[in-house]
Each structure stands twice: as structure tokens, then as C-alpha cells.
Design a protein around this nucleic acid. Structure first.
Length: 870
RNA sequence: GGGCGCGUGGCUCAGCGGUAGAGCAUUCGCUUCACACGCGAGGGGUCGGUGGUUCGAUUCCACCCGCGCCCACCA
């Protein structure tokens, strides 16, 4: 048996004063040198456990949330490794995208200007200046790469210190060559199959970042706003319909600045108040633009006055109305958020009074939407077209999740991946996937069912994976978007802004009859959605990919189900026709215990490294492991202290077990046999629970067993193991302790990798993290199967112990006192041979074992009555 | 408005159809030869509310209240 405790080949080497300090550095060095966590691909698929590790955003700050959720994944990785699996546990860095761009801009004081040429001699200033320096896109990307490389070092240092059992030879970055190749290849294949397409359409747009934003990146924020009741003139002036006013239609709007962009009014088809108006024309206030009144079921008779202004574009409902009612476009907001210049009276900008419209509009041109609104309100007051004062309200407004200003809707050309037609497949795949916890499945289904359009993947940014596409230019210089020039897959990755399409020369770039590269980059989720393919080296190492894909586990946090999880399932479905993984484990959030947000300004920020140093990595991991899958968990240094104490207890208990581990021999004593029987049960339930991803429960049970093992079992057998009752009885205790220690160390190993490794090294060869997960049969073998008396012995011991300890604590000096007439539980008599251990451990000499269950107990020499007695 | 989760001792959380549990905190006692980063004992809860099912509910069902998250067409 590989874990035979009597293995004489490895001598016991105990430190005098075991301590946790320095274990992280000591064992990390050893693990790295020994390749303890290296993935060995030479196994069949069913002996491999592969993990699609979340690539952390390296330009973000390190925080305790990282430590929390990455520990969960590591617990599972370590468990599976000990179960005999070859664990593929890579690490990725998410370095492309906006967060990095912003960080580079601030860190170096630069700004990307794609029109500039590359400057090979450019060096960023030591300190960012007051005004940002404009640099070319290649220079900018160089800086992004330089900074993320530093960030990645900091992350790796943290991960190693925390004890993640990652295979550090298997790392990737979402901007590296392999990621770009996978992203571009997958994209080109979708394009060739007609599953990726581009479209000029109204798109959600962030005016500060000047980029399109996907549905998944939206968030609603409650914003102060106001209803403005304004009137539209009716040229025929001949209705007395309620709400229509005398010659006017009253409309409520929160965005009066979009009056010049108004293309129609709309009311519900069944709304009696407005039925007479359908098909007629009204005029916008201030600008005198004739607009039709239309009927559409989306109009809500209960909102505002029941009739709404359709603008191009104020919100997503406007887009729906505009499309379904075939309305024209009158766009006023530019990609940078400013009001564009408009010449009234020209086609598309007809007005009953172009001069007045121009005068009104000139006061808006170049303003931001917020300033334009104030300006329009002022004019509406002057003209008398606003009825009453604005009514302040609070309403949800859509924002880009990283943005500061409300999103606008801008018409632009963007790339999309077909999503809507695959919704039934995606729902089916969601049902196939095993979710931990199960209820997270609902969030996915909710999202898929709520999708309103295909997935927009193009971003007008710089530090990302470019679209591997060029467009031929016509003689007039315009681009033929319908016939893109595509590279061979073998050329990928390419950058169309520097690489050339087949058959063209560099001097034809951006020239008539030449070509132009697609200027956009892919959204960061478009790259992240192929992390299983990237990590598994899909194109670069097909043998590896076949061994790890579909992967076993996707660990991630629950807030990105709609983004990362969903898009990964989509891409896998489109490219491979399968789920990308079999299991998804969703981790929760870290909550501040006082509901206070930790912030730098309050000075209460705790960096993860400081936490690890204060409490020890094992202590912090103990806390993290208490967070069950999907459950938000309070940030709790108290739990880390508890974990640290547990680790110290393991050191000391192990020292006790090993300091006098001779003699050894058959395990015959009832207490020993009972303890091992209970331990075998613990091993059995723990294995099942761990396989079900319930790592928190396993730790709780194991810890509970271990403390009882220390406080009760070890105390009870102490005298016996020191030889008070002869060598055979001592041998039984020693052997049982070592069987238990071996199994307990392995149960704890995924949680407390440092202390368990340290103790393991005192007496066992190799790494505990390469040892096999304990099996019930292995624990029971030395006692030839479960002891049927185990439960009875345990019950009797526990009951008697509790009673004696209670009595002892009632006495000031128990060792000098004698209790008379103390009542003991009848179970005391049932201890049988274990009574000897019991008496020794509790320093009690039983004077009498009476049938009534009363006994006179003597502590020491003098006899005194208990305090309650005479 | 829809979906999901949560509401158990001061705090953080387990549990679950059959007489309420742990850790922390608190009180008391103990330098017991692995550990004072330790050991023992005690106090403390009508398990959010109201109904229902049941011989019996903290545990199942319904509704309600509170908290949180996700989603939803922002006039």
C-alpha cells in the first residue's frame, strides 16, 4: 500500500518549534522546481480534468475578490489532481481592451492618434505631463504591451503566494499572437459561413469612448430627469379630441433637445384620444417640421400624455418604431456627443419656416445633449410651446457599464455575429450544462430569452484584436463593403492597418482603386469568448486541444453569465457544435462586513498581498473556501484568523503524533478502531461532496472532525501512547494516529496546501499534492473493516467526557478535590476497555461503578464535597 | 413589471419533517509534559410574518414583509 504508515524508508524529521512563517516561499520554490503542478498530456481524455481559467483583467487592481474566487477553482483543481486526474489548469491574462487603454493613457500621459505614423524612437516621459502626448497606434500598443507585462508579473506573484496550483508553463494573454490567431480564424470562418455580417444600423454608442457598445455591456442607472409637456401644432387645427387641445397635440418628453430629430408622433392603435389623428401631420415646435402621427402597439396610453415623440434616436423603442414604421432618419448627435451642424430647408431638413428653424438650431449646434436640453427648454419657454414647468422624475437611463454619460444611439457600420436564430440551441445547451449552483441556470435562460438582436462585436478602439479584413476602394475612393478582401487562414494573425491584402501594394493603401483596412477591433468579449480554444491551443496544438476540449470546468463569477459565459457557449456552438465545457461553477461576490465600500479615500483598503502576509495564505484560503458556490460572502478577517489557527493546530497535532511514533503494531483498542471507522465515513462523504463541487461542506466537516480528533481522541489516548498501559496498547494508538494523520492531511491539502505539505514532508516522501485522495477502504484496512462497536464507544465516551468535564470545571482545584455522589451517565459503564483511556485522560479514579449510575470519583487525594453539596 | 437568491443566538453562517447547531464575540475556570496562536465549562435564539398540509414544520406549500442580484420598450 503506497500510504503504509509503517513505511520505514522515510525517517521522521520534526522541527522543534513548527511555524507557518515562510512556508509559502519555501514550498512555492519546491513546487516550481519539481514541476508538481505540471500538466502531463499523456493520458486519455477521461483521465484529464481541464479548466477554462478566467483571465483576470490585469490592468485592474488586485483585490480580495480575486483571491476569493480563484481559490475556489484551485480547491477543485487540487481535489481532481489527488483523485488521479491529469489537471490542465492554465492561466490567462485579459490585457486587451478599454481598461488597459485607459490605464496606459493615464500612466504614461499619452493618447492614441491612429493618423500618426509609427515612431520607433518614441520614449514615454518619466512622469505624465499636463497635456497628453499624441502617439501612433503601434506606439500606443507597444506601451500597452509594456505595462500589461508588468501587471502580469504582479498577478503571477500573488497567485503563487496564494498557492494556486496553476501550470505556469501554460499561460496566455488575450492580446498575444495565439489569442489573435484564434479570434481572427474563428471570425473569418463565421464570415465565410454567413454567421458574421456587417450592417449600417442604429447602434448603442458611448460618446466619451466613441465606440459602439453591446447589449451585454449596458447597465441602467437611476437618473434625475423631467417630463416636459410640449405642444405640436396641428395645421388643420380642427379637433376637440381630449388631449389634442385646440389645434395642438400635447406630448410629454424627457428629451426635449431631440425635438429637431423628431420624425413622427406615435400612440396606441386603440387609444380613442388619438385615433382621429392617425394619418394626419403635425408640426414640431420651434422647428416647424411636419411629422406624421402613427399608430403602434408599443405606445403606452398610460405614459405621459399617451402619445410619444419618435426621434432618431432617443432610445431603443425609437429604433423599433423607426424600423417598423419605415420612418426617415434625422440624426443630430455626432459620435463625439455634440450636436452636428444642420442647414434647414435642405432635403431631409424641411421646415415650414427654415429661417426660424435655423435660428433655433444654431443655438444648439456643437453643444452636448445636456446643454442642448437646457437651451431648448429656454426656447420652448420663450415660444410658449412648453406647458407648465418640467416635472422632475427619476428614471432609469442606459449607460455603458464603464461610461460616465448616458448612451446615445448613433447610426454606424458594425460587425455582428448571428445569435437570434440560435436561441433554441443555446437554451438546449444551457440545459445540458451542469451548473453549480443549479439555480444560476435561470440567469442564463433569462438572458437568452431576453435577447433582442444579434451580437455586435466591433469596437472603435485600438488595443484589441483587429478584424482581419480589407475593403477594395472604388475609383471615387469610396469603399466596397460588400466585397471584403480576406487573408488566407495560414497568414493569421494579421493587422490590416499594416499588413497588405493579396495582390495589393503598400502605396495603394487608402487610395482610389486601392484598398483600406478595417479600422475596428473586436470587443474584448469577442476574444474572451474563445478562451477554451485559446487556452487549449486549438490551432497551434491540435493534439492538446483534442485532449482538453470540451473542457471540464468553467469557473467564473455570476455577474458575467450574460457576457463571458453566454458568448463562450455561443462561439463553441457555432464553431464546434458542442458545449465548451461540462460544468460551470459560479462564485459569489465579496461583501464588506459593514456594507461600506472599501475605498482608497477612506484608507481602509486592504491589498490581497497584505492579507496573505498577515494571516498566511492558508488562513486566507480557509476563509475563501467557506464561500459556497454562488454565495456572496462577507469579507471576514476573523475567519482568516480561524483558518490560521487551524493551520497551526495541524502543525502541533502532527508534531504530537510523530514525536514518539514508536512502537507500532496492530490497531486493536476500541477507541482507535472507533476513531478510524468515523474517519472512513468522513472520507466517504467528503469525496461525494467534493465531486459535487461542495468544497465548503467538505472543509466544514473535516475541520469539525479534526478538532474533535485533537480535543477528545488525542487527549484520551495520550497516556496510552506514552506507554502507561503497555507496548501493545501504545502500538495500537501510534498506528491509528498515523493512519488518521495521513488521511486528514490529504483531506485538508486542497484547502491548506502549505501547512499540509510542510507536515507531509516531515515523514512522507513526495508531495501531498501528488498523493492520492484518501479512500475509505484504505482507512479501514488496518482494522479489517468498520468496527460495529464504533458508534457505541464514541457515544459513551462523548457523553461521559462531557459530564466529567462539566464537573471538573465546577471545582476550583479539581486535581486536589474529590467529588462524592456525582452523577455520571449510565453510558460510562458501557465504555468497556476504553474506560481505561477515559480514566487516565480525565484523571479520575472510579471508586464505584454502581448500577444506578452513581459513582464516587476521586481527584487526587482529599475528598471534598462539590460546591453544591454540604 | 418579470426572474433568482437570501432573511436561524451580538456577528459570520451551517442545518432541516420529529425535543435548535458551529465558529467568532462574551462570562467563568485552567502555565494539564503537541499546541496559551492552547484547554475546559457557561450564558445567549418564540429559526422574518400570516395562513395551510401533517400526529408533528425552523425544515414542505401559498401569500405577505424586508434585503440583494439579474433582466425589462428610458415618451
Amino acid at each position: 500500500m503506497s500510504h503504509d504508515v509503517q513505511d520505514p524508508t522515510h525517517p521522521v524529521a520534526l522541527p522543534d518549534k513548527p511555524a507557518l512563517e515562510g512556508l509559502e516561499a519555501k514550498w512555492n520554490e519546491r513546487w516550481q522546481a519539481d514541476g508538481t503542478y505540471r500538466f502531463d498530456r499523456n493520458h486519455p481524455r477521461d483521465e484529464i480534468y481541464s479548466i477554462d481559467t478566467p483571465p483576470p483583467t490585469v490592468s485592474g487592481s488586485l483585490h480580495v475578490g480575486h483571491v476569493f474566487s480563484y481559490t475556489h477553482t484551485d480547491l477543485i483543481a487540487r481535489f481532481q489532481r489527488m483523485r488521479g486526474k491529469a489537471v490542465f489548469y492554465p492561466m490567462g491574462w485579459d490585457d486587451n481592451g478599454l481598461p488597459t487603454e485607459r490605464r496606459v493613457q493615464n500612466y504614461y500621459g499619452v493618447r492614441c492618434d491612429p493618423s500618426l505614423p509609427y515612431d520607433p524612437g518614441f520614449r514615454p516621459p518619466d512622469k505624465p505631463g499636463k497635456h497628453p502626448i499624441s502617439i501612433s497606434r503601434p506606439n500606443f500598443i507597444e506601451l500597452c504591451n509594456r505595462l500589461t507585462a508588468e501587471d502580469e508579473k504582479a498577478f503571477e506573484h500573488l497567485w503563487r503566494h496564494l498557492g494556486l496550483s496553476v501550470d505556469w508553463s501554460a499561460t496566455y494573454a488575450t492580446i498575444d499572437r495565439r489569442s489573435q490567431r484564434a479570434s481572427q480564424t474563428a471570425f473569418l470562418r463565421l464570415l465565410k459561413r454567413g454567421l458574421a455580417y456587417q450592417l449600417e444600423a442604429p447602434t448603442l454608442w458611448d460618446v466619451d469612448f466613441r465606440t459602439a457598445v453591446a447589449q451585454a455591456e449596458l447597465e441602467d442607472r437611476e437618473q434625475p430627469g423631467a417630463y416636459h409637456r410640449i405642444r405640436f401644432a396641428r395645421p388643420d387645427g380642427a379637433s376637440s379630441a381630449p388631449g389634442a387641445g385646440g389645434g395642438y397635440v400635447e406630448v410629454e418628453t424627457t428629451r426635449p433637445e431631440l425635438i429637431p430629430a423628431c420624425v413622427a408622433l406615435v400612440a396606441h392603435p386603440d387609444d380613442e384620444r388619438y385615433k382621429a389623428l392617425f394619418g394626419t401631420t403635425v408640426e414640431t415646435p420651434l422647428f416647424g417640421v411636419p411629422v406624421p402621427v402613427k399608430a403602434h402597439p408599443l405606445a403606452d396610453p398610460g405614459k405621459g400624455s399617451g402619445i410619444a415623440m419618435i426621434c432618431t434616436f432617443g432610445d431603443l423603442t425609437d429604433v423599433t418604431w423607426w424600423r417598423e414604421l419605415s420612418l426617415p432618419v434625422r440624426a443630430v448627435i455626432l459620435p463625439n456627443g455634440a450636436f452636428r451642424l444642420v442647414t434647414w430647408g435642405t432635403p431631409g431638413w424641411e421646415s415650414k419656416d427654415p429661417a426660424r428653424a435655423q435660428q433655433a438650431y444654431d443655438r444648439l449646434a456643437n453643444l452636448s445633449p445636456a446643454k442642448a436640453r437646457a437651451q431648448v427648454v429656454e426656447q420652448l419657454r420663450e415660444s410658449g410651446d412648453m406647458l407648465g414647468e418640467p416635472r422632475a422624475i427619476t428614471h432609469p437611463v442606459k449607460f455603458y457599464e464603464r461610461g460616465d454619460r448616458p448612451l446615445e444611439i448613433i447610426t454606424s457600420r458594425q460587425w455582428f455575429i448571428k445569435t437570434m436564430e440560435f436561441r433554441p440551441d443555446l437554451l438546449e445547451l444551457g440545459r445540458e450544462l451542469r451548473w453549480h449552483p443549479e439555480y444560476m441556470r435561470h440567469r442564463y435562460e433569462n438572458w437568452v430569452n431576453g435577447l433582442t438582436g444579434d451580437w455586435g462585436i466591433s469596437r472603435q478602439r485600438f488595443f484589441g484584436v483587429p478584424f482581419p479584413v480589407w475593403y477594395p476602394a472604388r475609383a471615387d475612393g469610396s469603399l466596397d463593403y460588400d466585397h471584403p478582401l480576406l487573408p488566407e487562414e495560414s497568414r493569421l494573425p494579421i493587422d490590416p492597418s499594416t499588413d497588405l491584402p493579396e495582390g495589393y501594394t503598400a502605396d495603394q493603401r487608402d487610395q482610389p482603386n486601392g484598398f483600406a483596412g478595417d479600422p475596428d477591433v473586436m470587443d474584448t468579449w469577442a476574444t474572451s469568448s474563445v478562451t477554451p480554444q485559446i487556452a487549449g491551443a486549438w490551432l497551434d496544438d491540435p493534439d492538446l486541444f483534442a485532449r482538453v476540449f470540451p473542457m471540464d470546468l468553467r469557473p467564473q463569477s455570476h455577474d458575467i453569465i450574460r457576457t463571458w459565459l453566454f458568448t463562450t457557449v455561443l462561439r463553441s456552438r457555432l464553431e464546434h457544435g458542442t458545449l465548451p465545457w461540462h460544468n460551470a461553477a459560479l462564485s459569489g461576490w465579496i461583501l464588506d462586513p459593514e456594507r461600506k465600500k472599501m475605498s482608497k479615500s477612506k484608507g481602509n483598503v486592504v491589498t490581497p498581498m497584505a492579507l496573505l502576509e498577515e494571516h498566511g495564505s492558508d488562513g486566507v484560503r480557509y476563509w475563501a473556501a467557506s464561500g459556497r458556490p454562488g454565495t456572496d460572502t462577507a469579507f471576514d478577517p476573523g475567519q482568516m484568523k480561524v483558518g490560521r489557527r487551524l493551520a497551526i493546530k495541524i502543525l502541533n497535532a502532527a508534531r504530537f503524533a510523530l514525536m514518539q511514533a514508536e512502537p507500532r503494531g496492530p490497531i486493536t483498542e476500541p477507541l482507535d478502531r472507533g476513531m478510524l471507522t468515523a474517519l472512513a465515513r468522513l472520507v466517504e462523504t467528503s469525496t461525494g461532496q467534493f465531486e459535487a463541487y461542495d468544497y465548503a461542506r467538505v472543509l466544514e466537516r473535516t475541520e469539525s472532525f479534526f478538532w474533535a480528533f485533537c480535543d477528545d481522541y488525542l487527549e484520551l489516548v495520550k497516556a496510552r501512547r506514552y506507554g502507561d498501559f503497555g507496548p501493545d496498547a501504545a502500538a495500537s494508538a501510534n498506528s491509528a494516529m498515523l493512519v488518521a494523520l495521513s488521511a486528514l492531511l490529504r483531506l485538508f491539502a486542497p484547502y491548506l496546501p502549505f501547512v499540509t505539505e510542510e507536515v507531509w514532508s516531515w515523514w512522507r516522501p513526495g508531495s501531498v499534492h501528488r498523493a492520492s485522495w484518501p479512500r475509505p477502504a484504505e482507512v479501514l484496512a488496518p482494522i479489517h473493516g468498520a468496527d460495529p462497536q464504533a458508534h457505541a464507544v464514541r457515544e459513551a465516551t462523548q457523553g461521559a467526557l462531557a459530564e466529567v468535564r462539566r464537573i471538573k470545571s465546577m471545582l476550583k482545584k479539581p486535581t486536589k478535590a474529590v467529588i462524592s455522589r456525582a452523577v455520571l451517565p449510565a453510558s460510562y459503564r458501557g465504555l468497556g476497555p476504553a474506560a481505561r483511556d477515559f480514566q487516565a485522560a480525565t484523571h479520575i479514579r472510579a471508586l464505584e461503578f454502581a448500577d444506578v449510575g452513581e459513582a464516587q470519583l476521586e481527584f487526587g487525594e482529599e475528598a471534598v464535597a462539590p460546591e453544591t453539596g454540604a
